[in-house]
Design a protein around this nucleic acid. Structure first.
Lengths: 218, 218
DNA sequence: ACACCTGTATAACAACGTTATGACGCTGTT
DNA sequence: AACAGCGTCATAACGTTGTTATACAGGTGT
């Protein structure tokens, strides 16, 4: 890891590329990537319970000790997996935005919300690791957690700011972004916990987001 | 357990007492209560990781096998613990409502929201068991999950309905209750995951709830 | 050529959830 | 009153987990 302290939101907004989650492995270790990918596959296929050091190491073609030399133990690998999850979430949001009107249209916020919920549904194991304490005895490093938070929230704030700049919304970018995140995360988490059964989830995301957005229309 | 199928929301609203979470042990087994309380204490004090069959059984003054005869295994005990968590959440909300204006005042919805968030913060382990996936390989029985959902959501719908009856709000009770739940749960979960650092959490709950409530004022 | 250090694999440890085994007490029957 | 049958409990064992200690390679600097 090259970044050891959580970057400020301002610094991420000023220069997003420098804090891209994709740079996690920039120090050149290809084996780390291989181990994380093996772990990610096991996580996606068998859930958090299938994640054992031995299986991961075997899948990556090494011994148990390999995880210790590369990550210092299971929490270290979990940290990388946690960051990987946020990377995938960001990728899913980017993909959804690709086929959207250009920045400044609140429709983009809805699209992010739908992608966020779809991620929670399609990758429940990752979502549980990221937000649900699914790996026993693991809580992300404040550095990792802060970086992931800054990325996720920073992207959202950027989109809201574009709407403010375009005049399609009014208010505080950070406040509005926080409100949207809270709303979308709440419905995603409750649905993931089996507390909401939605017949038309996308419509519900739109409906839930419409309230805060309408409150901030010009 | 006497209730084996999830009650409908309507039945809970019609007769809340019959579905009270406190009746879980009405079939008279005191040892179950003792074991669940020991487990709850361990959970609250040491987090989900401290929950081991052996420690729970020892704490309750029995052997490992005791958990198997009483609950059929760890998932069975987790199920009881899950229900216990919802019971405590409901109790916390009731306590907050006790010093509130009578039903019909939207201020009560804010109070529930603040109590919900405070519960997530004060009992993070219970919250993680209830809404995260903190106990490996455990997902609540659909019966238990449905009962807890019906209780939690039912209480909220009842409060919203009282506001509709009093004319302090307009709209659909279920829709509005769902929106409030989603909002409050989202901020509670994100804060619990370290993704939100709130200087004045209660004020933020009020602010977050104000938006949907203002949208439904008469 | 030799000491040194880094990284890997092997093996061992304690703790976990689960299951099998044997002993105890109770109930209904003969 | 004695006995078989049942459910319940404790003990012990099994396989697996994360972690740690130990031993073995391979390169590097002197």
């Amino acid at each position: 890891m090259t970044v050891t302290t959580p970057p400020t939101l301002a610094s991420v907004l000023a220069n997003p590329a420098a804090h891209s989650l994709a740079t996690t492995f920039e120090d050149g270790d290809e084996r780390r990537r291989a181990v994380v990918e093996a772990a990610a596959r096991l996580l996606a296929e068998e859930g958090p319970h299938g994640l054992s050091l031995r299986r991961i190491a075997a899948e990556a073609g090494g011994s148990t000790q390999l995880v210790y030399t590369l990550f210092g133990g299971k929490p270290g690998l979990a940290d990388a997996l946690y960051a990987e999850g946020f990377g995938r979430l960001a990728a899913a949001c980017r993909a959804a935005l690709a086929q959207c009107p250009p920045p400044g249209d609140p429709e983009r916020l809805m699209a992010i919300g739908r992608a966020y919920r779809a991620f929670a549904q399609d990758e429940p194991a990752f979502f549980a690791v990221m937000f649900g304490k699914a790996i026993p005895d693991f809580t992300p490093t404040t550095a990792t957690s802060g970086r992931c938070r800054a990325n996720t929230f920073g992207n959202l704030v950027g989109e809201v700011q574009a709407c403010l700049d375009a005049g399609t919304l009014v208010g505080s970018a950070e406040e509005l972004a926080r409100l949207c995140w809270v709303t979308v995360h709440g419905l995603s988490a409750l649905e993931s916990a089996g507390m909401l059964r939605l017949e038309d989830p996308d419509a519900f995301v739109d409906e839930a987001l419409r309230t805060p957005l309408l409150a901030h229309r010009p």
